[in-house]
Amino acid sequence: MADDVTIIVDGITVTVAQGTTLRAACDTAQHTVPTLCWHPNLEPANACRACVVEVKGSRTLVASCSRLVEDGMEVQTASDRVTHSRKVVAELLLSTSNADLAPDLQHLADISGANSERFAGGDTWEQPIQDDNNLYIRDFSKCILCYRCVEACGEDAQNTFAISVAGRGFQAHIDAGFGRELPESDCVFCGNCVAVCPTGALIGKAEWVLRRQGQWQEDRITTTDTVCSYCGVGCELSLHVMDNRIVKVTSPMDHPVTHGMLCVKGRYGYEFAQSEEG
Protein backbone atom coordinates (compact mmCIF):
# COMPACT_ATOMS: atom_id res chain seq x y z
CA MET A 1 0.00 0.00 0.00
CA ALA A 2 1.15 3.53 -0.66
CA ASP A 3 0.90 4.46 3.00
CA ASP A 4 3.07 1.58 4.15
CA VAL A 5 6.65 1.93 5.25
CA THR A 6 9.24 -0.79 5.13
CA ILE A 7 12.10 -0.89 7.59
CA ILE A 8 14.66 -3.43 8.71
CA VAL A 9 14.73 -4.49 12.34
CA ASP A 10 17.75 -6.62 13.27
CA GLY A 11 17.90 -7.85 9.69
CA ILE A 12 14.19 -8.64 9.53
CA THR A 13 12.18 -6.72 6.97
CA VAL A 14 8.90 -5.40 8.36
CA THR A 15 6.21 -3.38 6.66
CA VAL A 16 4.01 -1.20 8.81
CA ALA A 17 1.61 1.68 8.31
CA GLN A 18 3.00 5.19 8.11
CA GLY A 19 2.84 6.87 11.50
CA THR A 20 3.82 3.69 13.35
CA THR A 21 6.45 4.11 16.03
CA LEU A 22 9.73 2.22 15.92
CA ARG A 23 8.68 0.52 19.13
CA ALA A 24 5.55 -0.87 17.51
CA ALA A 25 7.49 -1.87 14.40
CA CYS A 26 10.01 -3.74 16.54
CA ASP A 27 7.07 -5.51 18.18
CA THR A 28 5.85 -6.54 14.75
CA ALA A 29 9.25 -8.03 14.07
CA GLN A 30 8.95 -9.78 17.42
CA HIS A 31 12.03 -8.03 18.67
CA THR A 32 10.34 -6.24 21.52
CA VAL A 33 12.21 -3.36 23.10
CA PRO A 34 11.92 -2.74 26.84
CA THR A 35 10.07 0.40 27.98
CA LEU A 36 9.47 2.14 31.27
CA CYS A 37 7.77 5.47 30.70
CA TRP A 38 5.82 4.48 27.60
CA HIS A 39 2.17 3.56 28.18
CA PRO A 40 -0.28 2.48 25.48
CA ASN A 41 -2.86 5.11 26.45
CA LEU A 42 -0.52 8.06 26.92
CA GLU A 43 1.58 10.22 24.64
CA PRO A 44 5.22 9.10 24.80
CA ALA A 45 7.02 11.12 27.46
CA ASN A 46 10.41 10.15 26.16
CA ALA A 47 11.91 10.35 29.58
CA CYS A 48 13.35 7.03 30.66
CA ARG A 49 15.41 6.20 27.58
CA ALA A 50 15.12 2.47 28.27
CA CYS A 51 13.64 1.98 24.80
CA VAL A 52 16.57 3.34 22.78
CA VAL A 53 17.56 1.57 19.58
CA GLU A 54 20.33 2.18 17.10
CA VAL A 55 19.22 3.67 13.79
CA LYS A 56 21.73 3.60 10.97
CA GLY A 57 22.97 7.11 10.21
CA SER A 58 21.88 8.60 13.52
CA ARG A 59 24.61 10.10 15.72
CA THR A 60 22.87 9.22 18.95
CA LEU A 61 20.58 6.36 19.85
CA VAL A 62 16.89 6.92 19.25
CA ALA A 63 13.96 6.52 21.64
CA SER A 64 11.83 3.96 19.86
CA CYS A 65 8.66 4.77 21.81
CA SER A 66 8.27 8.11 20.10
CA ARG A 67 10.23 8.00 16.85
CA LEU A 68 8.12 7.28 13.80
CA VAL A 69 9.22 4.86 11.12
CA GLU A 70 10.74 6.22 7.93
CA ASP A 71 11.10 4.18 4.79
CA GLY A 72 14.37 2.27 4.64
CA MET A 73 15.36 2.73 8.28
CA GLU A 74 17.80 0.12 9.53
CA VAL A 75 17.28 -0.51 13.20
CA GLN A 76 19.20 -2.54 15.73
CA THR A 77 17.49 -3.42 18.98
CA ALA A 78 20.36 -5.24 20.63
CA SER A 79 23.64 -3.73 19.44
CA ASP A 80 26.40 -3.16 21.99
CA ARG A 81 25.57 0.52 22.21
CA VAL A 82 21.90 -0.23 22.80
CA THR A 83 22.42 -2.85 25.47
CA HIS A 84 25.02 -0.65 27.11
CA SER A 85 22.65 2.31 27.43
CA ARG A 86 19.80 0.14 28.63
CA LYS A 87 22.00 -1.31 31.32
CA VAL A 88 23.24 2.10 32.50
CA VAL A 89 19.67 3.47 32.56
CA ALA A 90 18.62 0.57 34.77
CA GLU A 91 21.68 0.99 37.00
CA LEU A 92 21.08 4.70 37.41
CA LEU A 93 17.41 4.26 38.29
CA LEU A 94 18.20 1.48 40.76
CA SER A 95 20.71 3.82 42.40
CA THR A 96 18.04 6.40 43.20
CA SER A 97 14.73 4.66 43.54
CA ASN A 98 13.20 1.73 45.38
CA ALA A 99 12.15 -0.78 42.74
CA ASP A 100 10.26 -3.20 45.01
CA LEU A 101 6.94 -2.56 43.28
CA ALA A 102 8.35 -1.75 39.84
CA PRO A 103 8.18 -4.93 37.75
CA ASP A 104 9.12 -3.16 34.52
CA LEU A 105 12.27 -1.73 36.04
CA GLN A 106 13.13 -5.07 37.57
CA HIS A 107 12.66 -6.67 34.18
CA LEU A 108 14.88 -4.08 32.52
CA ALA A 109 17.55 -4.72 35.13
CA ASP A 110 17.31 -8.47 34.56
CA ILE A 111 17.51 -8.46 30.80
CA SER A 112 20.28 -5.89 30.70
CA GLY A 113 22.40 -7.54 33.36
CA ALA A 114 22.43 -4.36 35.42
CA ASN A 115 24.55 -4.20 38.53
CA SER A 116 22.40 -2.34 41.04
CA GLU A 117 25.44 -1.44 43.12
CA ARG A 118 27.50 0.18 40.40
CA PHE A 119 26.23 3.73 40.73
CA ALA A 120 24.81 3.32 44.23
CA GLY A 121 26.16 5.00 47.34
CA GLY A 122 25.40 8.57 46.32
CA ASP A 123 22.30 10.69 46.61
CA THR A 124 19.00 8.84 46.36
CA TRP A 125 15.38 9.80 46.15
CA GLU A 126 14.65 8.41 49.57
CA GLN A 127 12.10 10.64 51.26
CA PRO A 128 9.17 10.43 53.68
CA ILE A 129 5.92 8.90 52.47
CA GLN A 130 3.17 11.44 51.84
CA ASP A 131 0.05 10.16 53.55
CA ASP A 132 -2.24 13.17 53.33
CA ASN A 133 -5.57 11.74 52.21
CA ASN A 134 -7.67 8.60 52.54
CA LEU A 135 -7.57 7.48 48.93
CA TYR A 136 -3.98 7.18 47.82
CA ILE A 137 -0.44 7.41 49.09
CA ARG A 138 2.52 9.08 47.46
CA ASP A 139 5.81 7.33 48.13
CA PHE A 140 8.23 9.19 45.91
CA SER A 141 11.21 7.11 47.06
CA LYS A 142 9.87 4.73 44.43
CA CYS A 143 9.34 7.34 41.71
CA ILE A 144 11.36 7.11 38.50
CA LEU A 145 9.97 10.37 37.08
CA CYS A 146 8.35 8.65 34.12
CA TYR A 147 5.84 11.52 33.69
CA ARG A 148 2.93 9.10 33.28
CA CYS A 149 1.00 10.56 36.20
CA VAL A 150 1.48 14.09 34.89
CA GLU A 151 0.20 13.10 31.48
CA ALA A 152 -2.76 11.17 32.86
CA CYS A 153 -3.73 14.09 35.08
CA GLY A 154 -3.28 16.52 32.19
CA GLU A 155 -3.93 16.40 28.49
CA ASP A 156 -3.93 12.65 28.00
CA ALA A 157 -6.89 11.79 30.19
CA GLN A 158 -8.09 13.78 33.15
CA ASN A 159 -7.49 17.38 32.00
CA THR A 160 -7.25 18.49 35.62
CA PHE A 161 -3.56 19.48 35.55
CA ALA A 162 -3.26 19.11 39.29
CA ILE A 163 0.30 17.81 39.19
CA SER A 164 3.40 18.51 37.21
CA VAL A 165 7.16 18.26 37.39
CA ALA A 166 8.81 20.94 39.52
CA GLY A 167 12.47 21.58 40.24
CA ARG A 168 15.23 20.60 37.89
CA GLY A 169 18.04 18.10 37.58
CA PHE A 170 18.21 15.64 40.43
CA GLN A 171 15.70 17.81 42.33
CA ALA A 172 13.03 17.42 39.67
CA HIS A 173 9.96 15.85 41.25
CA ILE A 174 6.21 15.43 40.94
CA ASP A 175 4.45 18.28 42.65
CA ALA A 176 0.83 19.28 43.23
CA GLY A 177 1.71 22.97 43.01
CA PHE A 178 3.93 24.83 45.49
CA GLY A 179 4.57 21.66 47.46
CA ARG A 180 0.97 21.54 48.63
CA GLU A 181 -0.64 18.50 50.16
CA LEU A 182 -3.14 16.84 47.85
CA PRO A 183 -6.30 17.94 49.66
CA GLU A 184 -5.15 21.55 49.28
CA SER A 185 -4.31 21.07 45.60
CA ASP A 186 -6.43 20.95 42.46
CA CYS A 187 -6.55 17.14 42.65
CA VAL A 188 -10.01 15.62 42.20
CA PHE A 189 -8.91 12.18 43.37
CA CYS A 190 -9.78 10.33 40.22
CA GLY A 191 -6.79 8.06 40.83
CA ASN A 192 -5.91 7.98 37.15
CA CYS A 193 -2.33 8.85 38.02
CA VAL A 194 -2.32 5.87 40.37
CA ALA A 195 -3.64 3.63 37.61
CA VAL A 196 -0.72 4.39 35.31
CA CYS A 197 2.13 4.61 37.83
CA PRO A 198 4.58 1.79 37.06
CA THR A 199 6.46 1.82 40.35
CA GLY A 200 4.03 1.91 43.24
CA ALA A 201 5.10 5.47 44.00
CA LEU A 202 1.41 6.24 43.70
CA ILE A 203 -0.61 3.52 45.35
CA GLY A 204 -4.16 3.15 46.62
CA LYS A 205 -4.33 3.55 50.36
CA ALA A 206 -6.19 0.27 50.90
CA GLU A 207 -3.47 -1.62 49.05
CA TRP A 208 -0.71 0.29 50.83
CA VAL A 209 -2.16 -0.49 54.28
CA LEU A 210 -2.58 -4.18 53.45
CA ARG A 211 0.94 -4.38 52.06
CA ARG A 212 2.34 -2.78 55.18
CA GLN A 213 0.48 -5.29 57.30
CA GLY A 214 1.90 -8.07 55.16
CA GLN A 215 -1.61 -9.05 54.10
CA TRP A 216 -1.55 -8.18 50.41
CA GLN A 217 -1.41 -11.47 48.60
CA GLU A 218 -1.77 -11.38 44.85
CA ASP A 219 -2.74 -15.04 44.67
CA ARG A 220 -5.74 -14.45 46.92
CA ILE A 221 -7.05 -11.60 44.81
CA THR A 222 -9.73 -12.22 42.22
CA THR A 223 -11.09 -9.68 39.80
CA THR A 224 -14.68 -9.26 38.81
CA ASP A 225 -15.74 -6.97 35.99
CA THR A 226 -18.89 -4.91 36.31
CA VAL A 227 -20.30 -1.62 35.16
CA CYS A 228 -20.15 1.40 37.41
CA SER A 229 -23.58 2.18 38.85
CA TYR A 230 -23.02 5.84 39.68
CA CYS A 231 -23.94 7.46 36.38
CA GLY A 232 -24.91 6.71 32.82
CA VAL A 233 -21.50 6.81 31.17
CA GLY A 234 -21.08 3.09 31.55
CA CYS A 235 -17.51 2.74 32.75
CA GLU A 236 -16.33 -0.79 33.14
CA LEU A 237 -14.92 -1.52 36.58
CA SER A 238 -12.62 -4.37 37.58
CA LEU A 239 -13.15 -5.03 41.25
CA HIS A 240 -10.09 -6.56 42.88
CA VAL A 241 -11.41 -8.64 45.72
CA MET A 242 -9.50 -10.28 48.54
CA ASP A 243 -11.25 -12.15 51.34
CA ASN A 244 -14.61 -10.87 50.18
CA ARG A 245 -13.49 -7.24 50.40
CA ILE A 246 -12.84 -4.88 47.52
CA VAL A 247 -9.24 -3.81 47.85
CA LYS A 248 -8.79 -1.94 44.59
CA VAL A 249 -10.80 -0.79 41.59
CA THR A 250 -9.35 -0.40 38.13
CA SER A 251 -10.72 -0.30 34.63
CA PRO A 252 -9.27 -2.25 31.70
CA MET A 253 -6.76 -0.14 29.82
CA ASP A 254 -8.23 -1.36 26.53
CA HIS A 255 -11.84 -0.60 27.40
CA PRO A 256 -13.38 1.59 24.68
CA VAL A 257 -15.22 3.85 27.13
CA THR A 258 -12.70 4.35 29.91
CA HIS A 259 -9.30 3.57 28.41
CA GLY A 260 -8.48 2.63 31.97
CA MET A 261 -9.46 6.00 33.39
CA LEU A 262 -12.19 6.53 35.99
CA CYS A 263 -13.54 9.25 38.25
CA VAL A 264 -13.33 9.39 42.02
CA LYS A 265 -16.70 7.69 42.46
CA GLY A 266 -15.94 4.71 40.28
CA ARG A 267 -12.43 4.21 41.58
CA TYR A 268 -12.80 4.96 45.25
CA GLY A 269 -16.53 5.03 46.01
CA TYR A 270 -16.76 1.32 46.69
CA GLU A 271 -17.20 1.32 50.43
CA PHE A 272 -20.98 1.33 50.12
CA ALA A 273 -20.89 -1.98 48.31
CA GLN A 274 -19.41 -3.67 51.33
CA SER A 275 -20.98 -1.71 54.17
CA GLU A 276 -22.93 -3.72 56.71
CA GLU A 277 -26.07 -1.65 56.12
CA GLY A 278 -25.76 -2.64 52.43
Binding site: N46, R49, L93, F119, L145, V165, R168, F170
Partner: peptide, 19 residues
Protein backbone atom coordinates in the same frame (compact mmCIF):
# COMPACT_ATOMS: atom_id res chain seq x y z
CA UNK B 1 22.46 22.16 38.43
CA UNK B 2 21.33 22.96 34.91
CA UNK B 3 20.01 19.58 33.77
CA UNK B 4 16.28 19.92 33.29
CA UNK B 5 15.83 16.52 34.91
CA UNK B 6 13.69 15.08 32.17
CA UNK B 7 15.73 12.07 31.10
CA UNK B 8 17.44 9.42 33.20
CA UNK B 9 20.99 9.46 31.76
CA UNK B 10 21.36 13.20 32.34
CA UNK B 11 19.27 13.69 35.48
CA UNK B 12 21.05 10.98 37.43
CA UNK B 13 24.25 10.78 35.38
CA UNK B 14 25.24 14.41 35.96
CA UNK B 15 24.79 13.91 39.70
CA UNK B 16 26.87 10.72 39.72
CA UNK B 17 29.70 12.48 37.88
CA UNK B 18 29.75 15.17 40.57
CA UNK B 19 29.93 12.48 43.22
Amino acid sequence: DESCGQCVPCRIGTRRIVE
